[in-house]
Amino acid sequence: MFLPKIHIRQLRCLPKQLFLRQFCKCASQVPPEVLEELEQGFEDMKECDSKSLLKKHLTKERFDKLKDKTTPTYNSTLLDCIRSGLKNPDSGVGIYAPDPEAYSTFSDIFDPIIEDYHGGFKKTSVHPPTCFGFGSDFPNLDPDNLYIVSTRVRCGRSIKDFPFNPCLSKCDYNVLDSIITDALLNLSGEYSGTYFPLCGMEKDKQQELIDSHLLFKEGDRFLKDAKATRYWPTGRGIYINDNRNFLVWVNEEDHVRIISMEKGGNLGAVYERLILGENQLSKQLEFSRDKRLGYLTFCPTNLGTSLRASVHMRLPSLADDKAKLDKMAAKYNLQVRGTRGEHTDAEDGVYDISNKRRMGLTEYEAIQEMYKGIRALIDHECQEAAKACKK
């Protein structure tokens, strides 16, 4: 088993954990109170005006088939997967995987949601091998800095032999934090930097990092209801390189979020930095990867490449008609969000626009698809601006 160096004070809790995970793979019975909450939540969801993929695909037949199941190692239930979606009818997706085994144990609900979200990735589909390609293939999208404020590319990773947030103990968080930070502090060259644990971080420092769009925020209700914020801020933190253009989030939604960013629209440079940074980390950490689904993550929207390339950009003409912007973005498999991401508003007319598909295509193809889509949005905006000048 892959077991990186960890602190002696955290070694005490490992033998029991590893023994249980390797040898005690026996599903347990779903407690009556969990079944009761599931039944009530399912009935409430049927009556509410939810547009979530969970409501769309969780039929009565599927519900009855899955409600008594648990995952072999971690005993996660269907409720652990859909609790957040049941409590938040405004969820776009409404389901999370509490542990890697959930994707197979509850495949009857995960598979149709994955196919719907990722544009036809069927239960018989197989995600291709990793292929990053070269960032130099993508010239600057906005060399005159007229539309794009900043560019960011990130990917999520989970550490092999650990469950996802809802199943992590406080000790697990500390062990993961130690394993991951040991690797981060070995980064060299332009990736050299400093790790800032959330525990003990001054509030002013925390807010400064949030305001600079570097640090994640606490209090996401969707993650909270999925039990993904337990023991906060234990084991959470952020690594920032000296140039402040390469970040790693530790134990926020996924075990690891690798992020490359900079001002302007030079997607190729940002992508190349991510490729080389991920490569350095993958030599030190063993990431969870499934033969069919690709890289495994807490949220099924991030499976496969787990790659999300986004720009903060202003599109004055398109933004006047949000429905038109959304329709055009969908044509190129792009997703439009508020300035600070999902479930936020556009601040000062700045939208976060990113690739939506992450499965069934390589990392290179995902970036290529996003590049073409953003190029098309800019071209359309230029045409609209030219029309306005003629009036």
Rank of each mutant, 00 (worst) to 15 (best):
F106E: 03
S354E: 05
R257F: 00
Q40H: 09
S192D: 06
N140Y: 13
I159A: 06
A309D: 01
G373K: 06
E384G: 03
D64P: 03
L168Y: 08
H343S: 09
F246Y: 00
G341Y: 12
F138W: 13
I114F: 05
L267Q: 06
L79T: 00
Y173D: 06
R358F: 12
K356V: 01
D321P: 01
K291A: 12
L276T: 12
Q29L: 12
A388D: 04
K391Y: 11
V93P: 03
S178D: 15
V248W: 04
E36H: 06
S150V: 05
P112Y: 01
P129R: 02
D348K: 01
V350P: 04
T151Y: 14
I210P: 05
E262I: 09
L293F: 08
L11C: 10
F196E: 11
N88Q: 15
K160H: 09
M359E: 04
R230V: 04
H127C: 04
V175Q: 08
D204M: 13
F63N: 00
L35K: 08
M201T: 03
V93Y: 02
E33H: 10
P32D: 07
F23S: 13
D137N: 15
Y364N: 13
E262C: 13
R83E: 14
Y295N: 03
G94N: 05
V93D: 07
I259P: 02
K5V: 15
K60L: 15
D321K: 14
L78M: 04
L334A: 06
P166I: 12
P166R: 07
T151L: 12
I353W: 12
H255A: 06
L281G: 06
F287G: 05
N88F: 07
E381F: 08
G92P: 03
F42G: 03
I259K: 00
I374R: 06
P128R: 06
A376I: 14
F222P: 01
S178N: 08
Q40Y: 13
E347C: 02
L303E: 14
G294D: 10
A385H: 08
Q40N: 14
P300F: 11
G200S: 05
G237R: 01
D326I: 09
L66R: 08
L325V: 04
S28T: 14
D321C: 13
D142A: 01
T181H: 04
E369Q: 13
L325T: 06
F2H: 12
K25R: 15
G92W: 11
K46W: 04
R375H: 10
T181A: 10
R244N: 09
D108T: 07
K170P: 00
H127R: 02
D254L: 00
L334P: 08
H312F: 01
A226H: 01
Q368P: 01
A183K: 00
F23C: 10
D326C: 13
N333P: 03
I353A: 11
N245A: 03
V34I: 14
R375T: 10
H7S: 12
Y332K: 10
